[in-house]
Simulated assay, not measured.
Amino acid sequence: MEWDPAKYVQFGDYRDRPFFDLTGRVHADRPVQVVDLGCGPGNLTATLAERWPSADVVGVDSSAEMLAKAAALTGAGGGLRFEQADIAGWKPSTETDVVVSNAALQWVPGHQEMMRAWLDALRPGAWFALQVPGNFSAPSHALMRGLAASATWEPQLGGVLRGGESVGEPADYLRILLDAGYAADAWETTYQQVLPGRDAVLEWVRGTALRPVLAALSAPDAAGFEAEYAAALREAYPQTGHGTVYPFRRIFAVGRKNP
């Protein structure tokens, strides 16, 4: 599946805000190595390098398209660098003491078990922080899955989209952190995003959730799917004089490993 960095950052203020709400709860003083799992185009990873200029800050992502964009930031703010790798195969080093994953783990089946292994491997005093979307039951996602499962589209899209099983609830992540010996906090926030323009929700999901569908269909079929989906979205999220209100629930968890 290819990613479009320009489309991903189209709604930058809304996509960036959860990252800062998450990392604002990480109180590491002078970390040696900071890792951003699923760093995307690297713009947010660069803020970690600015925050901790003496740290080795590593952005990890599987997308060559995203990392091509991130490459221009290498070296900014100190020791910022990027690696192409699958999150599922990542392991912390003995020097890793801050791990951040923002809006990435929902793409990784079995990430809760991986998280347990990462937490166990991190050294005492290390921080782990994650944010994942919690809106898989929202109309934007339910309508997409319903259309993909219809008689017209199921032959091409059967099994392409995942649902609520993609992520846990705040209590699930809290329990994992506590069981691993971390002082932990977990919470959720629903952002009332006011998106501009026509078919604003469609434009939003084109950058993320719709990517698997677009990757599985030819260009003509993708246009046909989008036309049906857009009509359903207009009913679910009517445009107003202020824009289109798109509630987005996010799930957060942060923990520090006990000494």
Score class of each variant (00 low, 15 high):
Ala76Leu: 03
Lys69Gln: 05
Ala129Thr: 09
Ser63Glu: 01
Gln112Cys: 14
Gly78Lys: 13
His141Gly: 00
Leu119Val: 15
Asn135Tyr: 15
Pro92Gly: 01
Asp97Ala: 14
Val108Ile: 14
Glu113Trp: 00
Gly164Gln: 10
Ala138Leu: 03
Asn102Tyr: 06
Gly164His: 01
Asn102Phe: 00
Ala64Ser: 08
Val167Asn: 01
Glu154Lys: 15
Ser166Asn: 15
Ala85Cys: 12
Val167Trp: 14
His141Asn: 12
Ser101Met: 10
Leu122Thr: 14
Glu65Pro: 04
Leu80Ala: 02
Trp90Ala: 12
Gln106Met: 08
Gln112Leu: 15
Gly159Gln: 10
Phe82Gln: 07
Tyr173Ser: 04
Trp90Asp: 09
Pro139Ile: 08
Arg145Met: 02
Gly125Arg: 12
Val60Gln: 09
Leu122Asn: 10
Glu95Ser: 13
Glu83Gly: 04
Asp97Lys: 13
Glu169Cys: 01
Arg162Glu: 04
Ile87Pro: 03
Asp61Lys: 09
Ser93Ile: 15
Glu169Asp: 01
Glu113Thr: 11
Gln131Phe: 00
Leu67Met: 04
Leu161Val: 14
Gly164Arg: 03
Val60Ala: 07
Trp127Leu: 02
Pro170His: 00
Asp86Trp: 13
Glu95Lys: 14
Phe136Pro: 12
Glu169Gly: 03
Pro133Lys: 12
Tyr173Gly: 02
Val167Gly: 02
Gly158His: 11
Arg116Trp: 03
Leu105Cys: 10
Ile176Ser: 02
Gly75Pro: 13
Met114Glu: 08
Gln84Ile: 05
Glu95Gly: 08
Ala64Gln: 09
Leu143Asp: 05
Glu154Ile: 15
Ala72Phe: 00
Trp107Lys: 12
Ala138Asn: 06
Val160Tyr: 10
Gly163Pro: 05
Ala85Glu: 04
Leu174Arg: 15
Glu165Gly: 11
Asp120Gln: 14
Gly75Phe: 10
Pro124His: 09
Lys91Leu: 02
Ile176Leu: 09
Ala149Ile: 12
Gln112Ala: 10
Ala68Met: 04
Thr152Phe: 05
Thr94Pro: 12
Leu119His: 09
Leu122Pro: 14
Arg162Asn: 13
Trp153Cys: 02
Phe136Glu: 01
Gln106Asn: 06
Ala76His: 12
Gly75Asp: 08
Leu105Arg: 06
Arg123Leu: 09
Ala85Met: 03
Asp172Ser: 08
Gln131Val: 07
Gln84Val: 08
Ala180Ser: 12
Ser150Pro: 07
Val98Leu: 11
Ser101Gln: 13
Val167His: 11
Glu95Leu: 14
Val60Cys: 07
